[in-house]
Design a protein around this nucleic acid. Structure first.
Length: 787
DNA sequence: ATGCCAATACTTTTT
DNA sequence: GTATTGGCAT
C-alpha cells in the first residue's frame, strides 16, 4: 500500500511522517518537527501530505500547505505529484501571500476589496507613501518614507491597524496617523501591499463567520514549512484557521485541525523582517504538539558539522538539537587570514582553481558573504581570472523599470483607480505632462475624493488636454484588447504605450527592449503553465454553483503573478559557474565546497547587530546557516583591511572564529595568529590550541589530509600562496600589531592600521585620533604601545 | 521639462 | 565604490 512512501525514510523521519493526526480522544493532534539543516525537512513535509492522503485520512481538498517562497511551494507540488497520482494544482499549496491572495480574490466583496484589486510590491508601496506624504504636505525629512514604510509593515505584521497602535510620543502618533491615511489611500485606489494581503485575509476570516467556518472545516490538515520564520500575524492566521483560538463553533463536533509545523530555531535569520522564533515556543504551549527532532544530517562531513554544532552551542535561546552524521570527518575546515580584501579575493581565485582542477564542478562551489557590497571585489578577481560566476540577488525580472512600466499600463487597464500605476506612466514615455500638471491633477483628485484617473476629465486648460490624451490612450488600449489573448494584450500595450519606441531611441535601451519582448513570452508561458482560472474555482464555498462564478481574468491573474513572484534574478545563468550570494540567500541550498568570506568584526557579525544579545545570536545563526551549506569542504576567510563605503577599514577577525572547535580547523596562515591575537583581550586558549593544530597540518599535503574521497592532487592554490607569503617579511617581526593602540609624543593616540617594509625600512601606518592616517618609520618614530 | 552634477547614504530579503 | 536623489541650469 503506502509502505513504498516510507521506504526510504530513516526512523526519525518515518516517525514524523506517520505521527497520529488524531489523539486517543478523537481530537486533532498537532505536531512540531524540529528539523536540523540537511535533515530532509522538505521530504518529511511532502511525504506527510502524501501519507495522509494515501491512507485515506484526508482528501487533497482538505490539505493546506504553506511555505514562504514560491520555490519551496513549487518543489513541494512537484515532489507530491511524483509520489501520488493527483493533480496538485487544485490543492491549497502555496506561499502565505499566494494563498491569501487566492482567498481575497474569491471573497473580495466580503473583504471590502474591488474584484480588480492590485498588489503593491515594495517599490510600489514606497512610491505610494511618497505620494501620500506629498499630498498631505508632510515633511519627508521628519518622517522619512522608508521609515514609514517599515513602520506600516511591522504594525501590519503584528496584526495592528492604525487605530490599534498605542500612541507614545508625538512622532509615534504622527506615524500612526500617516499609517491610517496610507490605508485609506490604498482602499481608495483598490490596492493592497504584501502585509495587507495577510492582514486583510486574517480579518476576513475573523469577521465573517460563514467563511471562517467553511475553511476551518475544509482544512483538516494544515502543514507549514520554515515555521521559525513566521511573524505574529502569520501565527495568528494559523491559529484562527486551525481553530486554536477558540473561534471555531463546535457544531458538527469538528474541533480543531491538525497542524504539522516544520522548522529549525537555529536557522531563524529573518527577525529583522518581523519573524519571531518565539512562535515556536508559543506553538508548543498552545497547540500541545507531538515533538520529533530530525538530527540526522545527510549533507555535511563530520568536521563541518562539528564546527556548526560547536558554534551554535554559544547561543542561549535554543530549543536544543544537535546534528549528527554517518559520513566520516572529511576535510578539516580551512581558515585563511588575508592582509587585504584584494588578497582575500586573489586567494579565493587560486583556491577555486585548485578545487576545479580536483574535479569539483563550479556550480558546486559557493562564495558566501554577509552583505552584497562584498561581492564586487570578488567578482573583479573572478572576472580577471576568467572564472565563470553567477551572482544571486539584485533586480529580478518583474522588478526592472521597463517591466514595471509595462505592468503599470496593464494594471490601468484592469483598475484605472490605481494611482501608483497612473503616476508611474502618466508621463512615461514623456508626453509633456510635468510636475505642474500632476500637481493640479492631485489637487483636483483630493478635492473630489477620487482617483487621478477620474479627476483627469475635470481638468481644464492645457493640462486637461494633455491629460485627456493619456486617458484616451489607456481607454483605447483597454477597448482594443478587450477580446485579445493575454500575450496579444501585452504586445499591444508595449507597442501603443510608446515604451518600445522610447527604448529603441535610447542609446542603451536595447536590453530593455529585449526585456519587454520577454514579457510577452512570460505571458505566453503563464497562460500555458499556470491554469490561472483554478484558484477561484478551488476557493468555492459549498452551495455556490459551478466553478467559474468568481471569474478571474487572465490579465488579473498575470498581474498578481507578477507581483507575488518577481521572477528569477539570474543574470548569468546557464553555464557551469561559481555561485556568489549572501548568506541569507544561501539558506536552503547546499554545495560541495563553500567559502565564507569577510569573517570580521563589524561585518560578520555585522556592526548593527553587535550590541544587542538578540542581534548577535541571529548573526550566529546566520553563521550556522552558512557553515551547514557545505557538504565536503568549508573555507573561512577574513582580512585585516577592507575597502568599505569608499574608505579602508581595519577590522578584527570575527569572534565566531573563536567559537569553532580547534580539532576541526586548519589554519592556512600560521603567522596570523601571532600578529593578530597576541595582545588581544580575547580568550587565548582556543587559539593556542588552534595554532598547534595548524602546525601539525602544515606538513601535510593540502588535498589529502583525512579525505576518504581521494582526488588527483595538484599543488596549486593555497600551497603556492603560502610560499609567496613566506617570501615576504614575516609580520610577526614588527613590534606592533595591526589593530593595536599606540601613543606618539607629537600626534597622540592612534591605532596601527598597516605595517610594511623590513629592517630600517619598516614602517607602520597609524590612524591618529586627532591627526588622521600617517606612515611612520619605526626606526625613527617614538611610538609606544598602549594596553 | 529635462538633463547633468554634486551630495548622500549604505545589512540581510521574500512576498 | 556605487546607486540614488535633489538642486540647479539649460
Amino acid at each position: 500500500m503506502y509502505s513504498d512512501l516510507l521506504a526510504n525514510l530513516n526512523p526519525e523521519q518515518r516517525e514524523a511522517v506517520t505521527l497520529p493526526p488524531v489523539n486517543p480522544h478523537g481530537q486533532a493532534q498537532s505536531a512540531l518537527i524540529l528539523a536540523g539543516a540537511g535533515s530532509g525537512k522538505t521530504r518529511v513535509l511532502t511525504t506527510r501530505i502524501a501519507w495522509l492522503i494515501q491512507t485515506g485520512q484526508v482528501s487533497p481538498i482538505g490539505v493546506l500547505a504553506v511555505t514562504f517562497t514560491n520555490k519551496a511551494a513549487k518543489e513541494m507540488m512537484v515532489r507530491l505529484s511524483a509520489m501520488l497520482p493527483i493533480n496538485t494544482r487544485g490543492m491549497w499549496i502555496g506561499t502565505f501571500h499566494g494563498l491569501c491572495n487566492r482567498l481575497l480574490r474569491a471573497h473580495h466583496k466580503e473583504a471590502g476589496l474591488p474584484s480588480t484589486f492590485q498588489i503593491l510590491d515594495t517599490q510600489d508601496q514606497l512610491s505610494a507613501i511618497k505620494r501620500l506624504l506629498k499630498g498631505l504636505k508632510v515633511d519627508d525629512e521628519k518622517y522619512p518614507p522608508k521609515q514609514l514604510q517599515y513602520f506600516i509593515a511591522h504594525a501590519k505584521e503584528r496584526g495592528q491597524r492604525a487605530k490599534d497602535l498605542a500612541v507614545g510620543d508625538d512622532f509615534q502618533a504622527k506615524m500612526a496617523q500617516l499609517y491610517g491615511a496610507y490605508d485609506e489611500q490604498c482602499q481608495r485606489e483598490g490596492v493592497v501591499d504584501f502585509a495587507e494581503l495577510l492582514l486583510r485575509s486574517y480579518e476576513l476570516l475573523k469577521h465573517s463567520e460563514p467563511i471562517r467556518t467553511h475553511y476551518q472545516e475544509r482544512f483538516r490538515h494544515i502543514l507549514i514549512d520554515e515555521f521559525q520564520d513566521t511573524n505574529a500575524l502569520q501565527y495568528a492566521w494559523l491559529k484562527l484557521l486551525s481553530g486554536h483560538d477558540a473561534s471555531r463553533v463546535n457544531v458538527s463536533g469538528m474541533g480543531t485541525s491538525a497542524v504539522f509545523a516544520v522548522g529549525d530555531d537555529d536557522q531563524s535569520i529573518y527577525a529583522f523582517r518581523g519573524a519571531d522564533v518565539e512562535n515556536m515556543r508559543l506553538y508548543e504551549k498552545q497547540f500541545h504538539p507531538l515533538l520529533v527532532k530530525l538530527e540526522q544530517n545527510y549533507r555535511s562531513h563530520g568536521h563541518i558539522l562539528d564546527t556548526a554544532n560547536h558554534l551554535i552551542a554559544n547561543n542561549s535561546e535554543r530549543l536544543g538539537k544537535n546534528l549528527r552524521t554517518d559520513a566520516g570527518h572529511g576535510e578539516p575546515v580551512r581558515i585563511y587570514d588575508a592582509p587585504s580584501d584584494h588578497a582575500e579575493a586573489a586567494w579565493l581565485v587560486e583556491e577555486i582553481k585548485a578545487l576545479v582542477n580536483s574535479g569539483i564542478k563550479r556550480t558546486e562551489i559557493a562564495l558566501l558573504y554577509r552583505s552584497n557590497a562584498q561581492s564586487r571585489i570578488i567578482e573583479h578577481n573572478l572576472f580577471s581570472a576568467a572564472i565563470p560566476y553567477r551572482v544571486y540577488g539584485g533586480l529580478r525580472f518583474f522588478e526592472r523599470a521597463e517591466i514595471k512600466h509595462a505592468l503599470a499600463y496593464l494594471r490601468l487597464l484592469e483598475n484605472p483607480n490605481d494611482d501608483t500605476s497612473f503616476s508611474r506612466v502618466v508621463n512615461f514615455p514623456t508626453r509633456g505632462i510635468g510636475a505642474r500638471s500632476i500637481e493640479a491633477l492631485q489637487d483636483a483628485a483630493r478635492a473630489q475624493q477620487c482617483s487621478l484617473y477620474s479627476a483627469a476629465s475635470s481638468l481644464e486648460g492645457k493640462a486637461g488636454a494633455t491629460l485627456g490624451g493619456f486617458i484616451r490612450l489607456v481607454d483605447h488600449m483597454r477597448e482594443a484588447t478587450r477580446h485579445n489573448t493575454l500575450p496579444e494584450t501585452v504586445e499591444f500595450v508595449i507597442q501603443h504605450s510608446g515604451l518600445i519606441q522610447h527604448y529603441l531611441s535610447e542609446r542603451e535601451g536595447q536590453d530593455r527592449v529585449e526585456n519587454l519582448q520577454e514579457l510577452i513570452n512570460a505571458a505566453t508561458a503563464f497562460i500555458a503553465e499556470e491554469g490561472y482560472g483554478q484558484d477561484a474555482a478551488a476557493a468555492m464555498l459549498p452551495g455556490e454553483n459551478a466553478p467559474g462564478v468568481v471569474e478571474v481574468s487572465p490579465l488579473a491573474a498575470f498581474l498578481s503573478h507578477a507581483s507575488l513572484e518577481a521572477g528569477d534574478n539570474q543574470a548569468q545563468a546557464g553555464q557551469d559557474a561559481v555561485q556568489l550570494m549572501t548568506v541569507h540567500s544561501a539558506k536552503g541550498l547546499e554545495f560541495t565546497a563553500v567559502f565564507i568570506t569577510g569573517l570580521e568584526e563589524g561585518l560578520f557579525p555585522h556592526e548593527n547587530s553587535i550590541n544587542e544579545q538578540d542581534g548577535l545570536e541571529e548573526e550566529r545563526r546566520l553563521m550556522y546557516v552558512a557553515i551547514t551549506r557545505a557538504k565536503e569542504r568549508l573555507y573561512l576567510s577574513h582580512t585585516q583591511s577592507r575597502m568599505l563605503h569608499g574608505q579602508v577599514r581595519y577590522n578584527m577577525p570575527s569572534r565566531f572564529l573563536e567559537e569553532l572547535p580547534s580539532d576541526s580547523l586548519k589554519w592556512l596562515t600560521p603567522k596570523a595568529k601571532d600578529a593578530r591575537w597576541g595582545g588581544n583581550s580575547r580568550s587565548g586558549s582556543t587559539w593556542q590550541d588552534g595554532y598547534t593544530r595548524q602546525r601539525e597540518y602544515e606538513s601535510n599535503d593540502f588535498f589529502d589530509s583525512g579525505s576518504e574521497r581521494q582526488r588527483p592532487v595538484k599543488r596549486v592554490g593555497s600551497a603556492s600562496m603560502e610560499v609567496k607569503r613566506l617570501a615576504s617579511p614575516p609580520r610577526g617581526d614588527y613590534p606592533f600589531k595591526i589593530g593595536q593602540n599606540v601613543f606618539h609624543t607629537k600626534f597622540g593616540e592612534g591605532r596601527v592600521t598597516g605595517l610594511e617594509g623590513v629592517d630600517t625600512d619598516a614602517r607602520a601606518q597609524v590612524n591618529f585620533k586627532r591627526h588622521g592616517i600617517k606612515w611612520l618609520q619605526l626606526s625613527i618614530a617614538k611610538l609606544a604601545a598602549i594596553d
